[in-house]
Amino acid sequence: MDRFVFLTVDGLSRGAVYAAFALALVLIWRAARVVNFAQGAMAVAAAYVAYSVSAATGSYWLGFVVAIVAGLLLGALVDRVVMRHVDHASPLNPVIVALGLVLVFQAVLGMVYGNEFRPADVPFSRSALTVGGVAVLSPYDLFVFAAIGVVVSALAWMFARTGVGLRMRAAAFAPEVSRLLGVNVGGMLTLGWALASGVGALAAMLVIPTELGLHPHAMDLVFVSAFTAAVVGGLDSPPGAVVGGLVVGLLLSYVSGYAGSDLTPLAVLVLLLAVLLVRPGGLFAPVAARRV
């Protein structure tokens, strides 16, 4: 029972990170109809910037804030400098360009920082607090839940309640009509890329210290898990991405705890395959809207 509680909490904590990363994928998919395969590499780049800042100043929090800002800027930059100029007539084009970006980012990071694991700091202890003799949550887990909870709620509020959020949704659903209504569609697209990349940077900052450390490939496996989470939730659904992330996190935690951690990459791919075969639209696929 103790083990089950531990695995569940650990799975949820990891799942929260997948949820955030999946949400970032969904944001870009909805806005630009692109699966941003470069998101992992972009997030790692932001984390390296944080690493440099923290190493120079000795402040974790300064590095943390800089990572988010770097993520936002990098997202806007990738949209304006690269993705905007890709011909989207074939859906394969942006995918190939994104994969190319992965190679570029990872090569540059490897040249600048070296292809070795660097230990990444945590701001709070990772040893679990015990409640009634059962080890449950670590302060760091609480920090992860709080950070992602705040960001996800803020995004949900922004999309549902603010003028900017309404503009962003309108621009994604009907770009031409939105322009006729005075919406700067290009600007909304850039904003979507920036927000997604900022969320990705946050996820990287939270998850990298819990794994092997900072490395140009540090987010590769997280990306696969988050992509699976996004597909489980249906690429078009932000709440689906969050639920999908938690589901994938729990599944991986149970598989690794009860069957062995070697099996987790396999488990992710089996889940991805199963969802694509059985419900390609995702578990949260909306009923197809009648279009007139």
């Binding site: 309404l166 949704r169 659903f173 209504l181 809207a289």
Partner: peptide, 14 residues
């Protein structure tokens, strides 16, 4: 050009 995915109120506010 009514945006099907938005509500009446959202379409109008837009």
């Amino acid at each position: 050009g009514v945006i099907s995915e938005l509500t009446v109120d959202e379409n109008l506010r837009l």
